[in-house]
Design a protein around this nucleic acid. Structure first.
Length: 425
RNA sequence: GGAGAGGUGGCUGAGUGGUUGAAAGCGGCUCCCUGCUAAGGAGUUACAGGAGGUAACUUUUGUCGAGGGUUCGAAUCCCUCCCUCUCCGCCA
């Protein structure tokens, strides 16, 4: 959520900043609402002050005169009655105004960072660096072909259970999933992150707090009997973990790592990545999350990104680091570095982690602050996948494939998986 | 799912219509006493927002789970909702 004061006092700078996203933003209506809100707030506050004084006076008069029905007292009561009517009129107006204002202000995305490359869409993203040697040979199998041959997962049967875009992991596939989760959690916890396993169902307020609502309700699964949704990413419960809190400044930064299943409707992606592990309605993810001193989020962003990178390096998977351009930034993010892993079968890099600095955008929506110099200040939040498990498995299968049909696993995984090969049984 | 109890400041806990933002205790902070510690004494201590001032600060509003209502005035009365706890049932 953007700062209301800024919208009220400097609407043109708000429009300018937002338009870096490559679209035209006209906030004149929102601006008007903020100005009006301010006026009404002051008016109500003044009336309440008067009315409060009067009520005290009446109390005093009654206790003095021992007669609470004298003419003077009745006159005072009448006066008070008038205040009450006027206040409730203003309050009704304020209620409507607040509703409208909130709806609109919650639909505005975050400002892109001045450092983000300017551009319209993903074609303008900037590759910062590449790591490792991408495997480029003929005759390379896709991970779903490998998985099928080694009987690691089954999507056809999963369609019977649920519908398309669900997967059942089998045998070594399930074991590899488990190994990857443990491997990642171990590395991150050794690296100073506190592990959490949050609820997978989250309420609307939590989704609103991290930016998925009100704009992206079609992206998440909703439980119609309750005000609960299947969490699309651990970012949601992790943000909400400290909702409505003032965090002790000495505790910052707070670094969490959370393994969680993630559920996404993938509305509008029909026909894309229909095979394999790349785009599923349900997938596992290990998520990194920081609550950080607002003065230090730029360094924190580098740090969280390199923490995610460290997993790819340890798994020896070729990847590249991409600076997301202003037009391609997510709703809540001011700057995002994507990590893209090499998938030889499609001869391309695919997103496996997205590391975002949301500045105070989510903190404002979720009301998470810290006290510095006796003043409360919104903290900054950062999130990054570390990593998406299914896509990591796809990358391991494709990059480790051998001519005999087996898959060689990265050495770092051996203690977790118990073997350095997956072969047909 | 059924029955009951309850939600008050950092915590415990009083308060059932009037200068009550809220007794008391614990905790916190400051000072005094003391060779140090302990004990003791005095004082102080909710939070959030707005307006004004460079600032120390001043002023104002709101907040006793949330939202409505009654009233000149609500922590206190009425309604709705949420949450927590206990017992029973069911259950991984």
């Amino acid at each position: 959520m953007l700062d209301q004061k800024l919208i009220r006092e400097n609407p043109s700078s708000v429009e300018e900043n937002l338009s870096l996203r490559g679209k035209v933003f006209n906030i004149s209506h929102i601006h008007e609402l903020t100005v009006k809100k301010k006026e009404i707030d002051i008016e109500i506050s003044n009336l309440q002050s008067e009315s409060k004084k009067l009520s005290k006076l009446i109390g005093q008069e009654i206790s003095k005169s021992l007669n609470n029905n004298s003419q003077e007292i009745n006159e005072l009561k009448n006066k008070g009655n008038k205040y009450r009517t006027r206040i409730s009129e203003f309050e009704e107006e304020k209620r409507i105004l607040d509703n409208n204002l909130y709806k609109e202000i919650l639909s505005l995305p975050n400002f892109p960072s001045k450092d983000a490359p300017i551009g319209e869409d993903e074609n303008n993203n900037v590759v910062i660096k590449t790591w490792g040697d991408p495997l480029k040979k003929g005759n390379l199998k896709s991970h779903w072909e490998i998985g099928e041959r080694l009987n690691l997962f089954d999507s056809t049967k999963s369609t019977k259970i649920s519908k398309s875009r669900f997967i059942t992991l089998i045998g070594n596939g399930a074991k590899l999933e488990r190994a990857l989760i443990n491997f990642m959690l171990d590395i991150h916890t050794k690296n100073g992150y506190l592990e959490l396993i949050p609820p997978a169902l989250v309420n609307s307020e939590s989704l609103q707090g991290s930016g998925q609502l009100p704009k992206f309700s079609k992206e998440s699964f909703n439980c119609s009997n309750d005000d609960l949704w299947l969490s699309p990413t651990a970012e949601v419960p992790l943000t909400a973990f400290h909702k409505n809190e003032i965090i002790d400044f000495k505790l910052l930064p707070i670094k969490y790592v959370a393994y969680s299943p993630c559920f996404r409707r993938e509305a509008g992606s029909y026909g894309r990545d229909t095979k394999g592990l790349i785009r599923l309605h349900q997938f596992n993810k290990v998520e990194l999350y920081w609550f950080c001193d607002p003065c230090k989020s730029l360094e924190a962003h580098k740090s969280i990104t390199s923490d995610a990178e460290s997993i790819l390096k340890k798994l020896n998977l070729p990847y590249r680091l991409v600076d997301i351009c202003t037009g391609d930034l997510g709703f809540s993010s001011s700057r995002t570095f994507d990590l893209e892993v090499w998938l030889p079968s499609s001869n391309s890099y695919r997103e496996i982690s997205s590391c975002s600095n949301c500045l105070d955008f989510q903190a404002r929506r979720s009301s998470i602050r810290t006290k510095t110099n006796k003043k409360n200040q919104y903290i900054h939040t950062l999130n990054g996948s570390g990593l998406a498990i299914g896509r990591t498995m796809a990358a391991i299968l494709e990059n480790g494939q051998q001519t005999d049909g087996s898959v060689k696993l990265p050495d770092a995984l051996v203690p977790y998986f118990g073997s350095n090969f997956i072969k047909t049984t």
